[in-house]
């Protein structure tokens, strides 16, 4: 038995001052990265995790980095969501990410939680995952090799391996998220269906479009909540590519989403509803994405 009022598990805690120190600590048995704590403490309180050591990374200067230069947005692993939601760069250039962050939890949660934490928790319904996937984000992973810090970069779409599971190996941590600058004439948007406004998604999605004149040159669409991990729905992406959008054609393309999904029924919704509404959500999210790419208003023809 456990209790959400109190933690009885014994663990040690270290507030790392450098990445080296953090990585060294993370190599120990039962060590966990501790940033906002909003997911990890709940796991501990509900006895779904029993760490031996929490490595608080929020004091590490180099992980607090936030920069936008040379066509790339860099977000350090210690950057909190509330910092990002007010950032002009994100509001203006990455509106789908902005929308996802605003829809995530409450002010209090966003004041604590980090973007990297939202990804590392690897929930199939992590709100920030679909937009970052369609922006082609990459995850920077660090580990200690002897005493040297080694980094590897992997695409976010290869990061998740299952519910709550990622490619991270023991001793590794995500140190940053890199998001390339969206190309000209592209646009993206985020959509979510949930029980109430402040809620985990039943289904969420992000649509990214590259426009050429009145045609969709390329589409990237990611859906969360309808498979063990957030997924890119290639069937729909392919169907949209080269399309001159009309309401009907978008619907037809979005309806293909079911072929890329494998949702389950749980306390929040049913598998059937998730599949059905995923296509509605994609269609609804297409319109603002198209508009942001500079596309003309879509008519019903």
């Amino acid at each position: 038995m456990s209790s959400s009022r109190i933690i009885t598990q014994d663990f040690d805690y270290i507030k790392a001052v450098s990445l080296g120190e953090a990585l060294e600590s993370l190599a120990k048995d039962g060590a966990r990265v501790f940033a906002g704590g909003t997911d990890l403490l709940n796991k501990i309180k509900t006895a779904r995790d029993n760490p031996k050591l929490l490595v608080d990374i929020t004091g590490i200067e180099e992980l607090k980095g936030f920069s936008f230069s040379e066509g790339c947005l860099l977000i350090g692993a210690a950057v909190r969501l509330s910092f990002l939601e007010d950032e002009k760069v994100i509001t203006e250039r990455y509106p789908a990410l902005h929308e996802a962050i605003k829809s995530l939890g409450s002010v209090q949660i966003r004041n604590m939680a980090t973007l990297a934490g939202n990804l590392c928790n690897a929930s199939p319904i992590a709100d920030t995952a679909p937009p970052l996937m369609v922006y082609d984000a990459e995850v920077e992973i660090s580990r200690l090799h002897n005493t040297r810090i080694e980094k590897r970069i992997i695409s976010l779409k290869d990061f998740f391996t299952g519910p709550g599971q990622t490619v991270l190996q023991k001793g590794e941590m995500v140190t940053g998220v890199r998001v390339p600058e969206p190309m000209a004439s592209s646009g993206a948007a985020f959509g979510k269906i949930a029980r109430v406004t402040m809620d985990l998604a039943k289904v969420n999605c992000a649509v990214w479009l590259k426009r050429e004149e009145a045609v969709v040159a390329e589409a990237r669409i990611a859906v969360g909540g309808a498979a063990p991990v957030p997924v890119r729905v290639e069937k729909v992406e392919k169907a949209l590519a080269g399309m001159r959008p009309s309401s009907k054609r978008i619907s037809q393309a979005a309806a293909l989403v079911g072929e890329n999904l494998s949702p389950i029924s749980d306390v929040r919704s049913t598998a059937k509803y998730r599949t059905d509404t995923a296509s509605v959500l994609i269609r609804d999210t297409f319109f603002p994405a198209w508009k942001r790419s500079g596309g003309e208003e879509i008519t019903d023809e």
């Binding site: 959400s4 805690y13 909003t38 403490l41 004041n111």
Partner: peptide, 19 residues
């Protein structure tokens, strides 16, 4: 359990005293 931490609302039941 909301309290203000350096002026920002946070959840004191989701926060270790140490942090």
């Amino acid at each position: 359990c909301t309290v203000l931490m350096d002026g920002n609302p946070v959840l004191s039941c989701q926060m270790l005293a140490l942090s």
